[in-house]
Design a protein around this nucleic acid. Sequence first.
DNA 1: AATATCGATATACAAATGTATAGCAACAAA
DNA 2: TTTGTTGCTATACATTTGTATATCGATATT
Lengths: 129, 129
Amino acid sequence: MYSNKDKAKEMKDLGCFSEVKQCPTRYVLAVNDTLNVISGKWKLSIIASLIHGKKRFKELERSIEGITPRMLSKELKELEINGVVKRLVHNTRPVLIEYELTESGYRLTDVIDAMIQWGLAHRQAYMSE
Amino acid sequence: MYSNKDKAKEMKDLGCFSEVKQCPTRYVLAVNDTLNVISGKWKLSIIASLIHGKKRFKELERSIEGITPRMLSKELKELEINGVVKRLVHNTRPVLIEYELTESGYRLTDVIDAMIQWGLAHRQAYMSE
DNA sequence: AATATCGATATACAAATGTATAGCAACAAA
DNA sequence: TTTGTTGCTATACATTTGTATATCGATATT
């Protein structure tokens, strides 16, 4: 399937991950940051739900099937702390609260797209074994 | 920082994630596959350690600081089941066992590179708030 | 014959993560 | 005035994930 020579050849063309030995800590920290941000049962669902625009708490709760308010609250808080989601408190009566992706949050689509691509290719490879 | 118009404009240029409403299940499954494969405290360390070639159990154990044989065994098993790692049993006396990334496993570098890029950019954005 | 290495597994426990269910203060609508 | 919505929080529990430590059979080394 794959010779060791092919692998060695390919390594040269890979991105920065292959250089992990040259510049470890910065990259390892970066990967872990990303993994921490998207790990959690509901994180990606929340991000996906906010991709198309601001949403209120109850809107999110309704749009994400099966989530409990406790988990929604908890995950939103983590996403906010991690700088992926912004919590907007409107100065109205009663107060209206909206959640929105930050610029960084939007950029996560790059990671998610890579994950989709890998996932699709892997399913094919995996199934046709 | 970001207007809604800018966002709308950008959405058109995004990858498939932005089309999640058009083709949900396939993509959602693909993302979850990927997340499941890389989630776990030691998975990425193991993959990183195997990127430069085959390794034996004890070699991995030594190269990954802090891992216990139990976790190494468990995570390797999961990676194997998920088609990311191959377990090679050599027909020698005594048996020599090596672990190696599959083709899919190697391709994970695309995802990991995206994670590194996002992580680095996010650190910058996050710090300079 | 005693000791070490390989490739793990067994048992017990601790911590993190997620679920289920109920409730609550502030307002608004009927 | 009762009923409903919003945006949560509290409590209790179950499940998953990870740690610590010891051990084991097969083989090699001294």
